[in-house]
Amino acid sequence: MTKKAITKKYAALLRGINVGGSRKVPMAELRSVLEGLGHGDVQTYLQSGNAVFSSTEQDPAALARELEAAIEAHFGFRVACLVLDGAYLRAVLGACPFPAAELEGKQLHATFCSRQPGPERFAALVEASYLPEEYRVGDRVVYLYAPDGLGRSKLAEALARPAVVKGLDVTTRNWNTVVKLVELTGA
């Protein structure tokens, strides 16, 4: 009797593409790259580098490395990718320390990290000086409440400093996108 491979749904989050006219990754080509790697049910969401796909591979880090290599081979530049399974995204949604249902999507963000950031990374941040903005660290994610949006957030700027993100692959999505990715992965 042969063992049936388990298929999981994943979201791939690409960092820093299609911004300011550089590092262009058309979503149709990204879908083709993912399909070329043998993944199924490929969909993209928005132009900012969100893709959902199914795979029998059970290691999200291996999927991320494979996708980074394929993107570099296809487009000629490296793009950091985080691959997250649907169950993890659902857990991020459920663990949100802020009242997401009461906020606009542009006010709440999730910065996904390639591994858990330790508390020492945040030691220099004096959160009171950024109020009413706030952040909370979760499981490989930093939740950010920025009432005036990410573009005007001084706290988002501080959280992006090298002392905080050095050695991590990180990428941020607004709450509406996080909710949509959970929906698309069927989690």
Rank of each mutant, 00 (worst) to 15 (best):
residue 16 G to A: 15
residue 1 M to W: 14
residue 64 A to P: 10
residue 109 H to N: 11
residue 125 L to P: 05
residue 9 K to S: 15
residue 105 G to L: 11
residue 71 I to L: 15
residue 51 A to K: 05
residue 166 K to M: 03
residue 41 D to Q: 12
residue 53 F to V: 02
residue 176 N to Y: 11
residue 177 T to L: 10
residue 18 N to M: 07
residue 36 G to M: 00
residue 129 S to G: 11
residue 84 L to G: 05
residue 4 K to G: 15
residue 100 A to Q: 10
residue 77 F to C: 08
residue 51 A to F: 08
residue 52 V to P: 01
residue 96 C to I: 10
residue 131 L to F: 14
residue 102 E to P: 13
residue 23 R to H: 15
residue 161 R to P: 05
residue 1 M to T: 15
residue 31 R to L: 03
residue 105 G to V: 02
residue 5 A to G: 12
residue 104 E to L: 13
residue 33 V to I: 12
residue 184 L to E: 02
residue 23 R to E: 11
residue 60 P to G: 06
residue 96 C to K: 11
residue 46 L to V: 15
residue 116 Q to D: 00
residue 73 A to C: 10
residue 41 D to K: 12
residue 75 F to E: 05
residue 61 A to I: 13
residue 88 Y to V: 01
residue 126 V to S: 10
residue 48 S to N: 08
residue 89 L to C: 05
residue 86 G to A: 08
residue 115 R to K: 15
residue 133 E to T: 10
residue 37 L to M: 08
residue 51 A to T: 10
residue 57 E to W: 05
residue 18 N to T: 02
residue 81 C to N: 02
residue 101 A to D: 15
residue 12 A to P: 02
residue 91 A to W: 04
residue 7 T to Q: 13
residue 21 G to M: 03
residue 171 T to C: 06
residue 136 R to P: 00
residue 72 E to N: 00
residue 97 P to A: 03
residue 176 N to D: 15
residue 143 Y to H: 00
residue 62 A to Q: 13
residue 142 V to Q: 03
residue 168 L to C: 08
residue 121 R to L: 09
residue 8 K to S: 14
residue 37 L to K: 07
residue 108 L to D: 08
residue 84 L to K: 12
residue 160 A to F: 00
residue 113 C to L: 13
residue 7 T to E: 09
residue 168 L to Q: 13
